[in-house]
Amino acid sequence: MSSHPPVRDWATDFDHTDPGWVTDPFPIWDELRETCPVAHSDRYGGTWLPVRHEDVAAVAYDTEHFTSRQVIVSEARPGPNDLPAPIGIAPPITSDPPFHALARRLLLPAFAPKPIAALEPSTRELCRELLDATAGKSTFDAAVEYAQEIPVRVIVRMLGFPQEDAPRFRQFIHQIIEAVDVPAEERRELQDQGELGEYFEARINEHLANPQSDLTTFLLEAELDGNKLEPDHVMGTMILLMVAGIDTTWSAIGASIWHLATHPEDRHRLAAEPELLPTAVEEFLRAYAPVTMARMVSQDFEFQGCPMRAGDWMLLPFPAANRDPEVSRMPIGW
């Protein structure tokens, strides 16, 4: 829920925490695409919003004028304690070139097709267990009891943390991704100190004393230019993997279930023709693309006729880009 005043006008005062955006952003983007393809809002200290595919792609690929130093729009801006650009607080997602490529390459072996395929059997088993646990219930919240459970448990396993800690991860995600409309000071407190940092530090120390074959040990042993990673880099990347692995996936699974629940004809078709599932998954990822990242303008310049000022936020609604009729077919289908 947003603690901000209601949005007066989407072209000049938008806010992605407004209940109107949260419940149904699609008509907002459709309208802006026609009337004001790069919207602006004074909120969060100044934020831009491109909604056309062409503009979202242009910003995402333009690492000269836009920095990834901070990729979540909030009241808090990078502070003196944050790792400076081009590394950022959670490499590689908060890194800029040329450091970005190095930080990214470091992670790739852990996410190549073979190690990921090795996770499939246990993940399928987990999904079946969660479904079995709903037996006998006439209704249940599929987002909370199914979708949200899956990535939390998978990522806890990948990082090599105790399974019983899974519920705490929900709280961490809330602090980082959802609590973006709280005042800057409160947000810094949420992020900088306390439980989250302590929790990860404790796990890192355990792994240093007792290396495992998991992502945590993988990161602790990884080398850049012959040196082990800085402790801040390891912790930042671990927190990134937690956030990137959990929030995205639970939103994607939840949105897909929601689509099937509200489109019985699609549900019947998939049940009858399960070989269409891979295509359906691609369509869900396109139309409900569960990630809206941000960039920060790194220098004053003009973009699509709009005056960008260094330090302005640039919100990137990927699902809006993916639904642009210039490049995509709507409604979704397979």
């Binding site: 072996p109 996410f111 097709p113």
Partner: peptide, 21 residues
Amino acid sequence: QGHNRCYALAPEVFDVDDLGF
């Protein structure tokens, strides 16, 4: 950048190295 979309879609046409490139 090693997204592996090609390998997922057409494993008969593309392969990937240990880094996923």
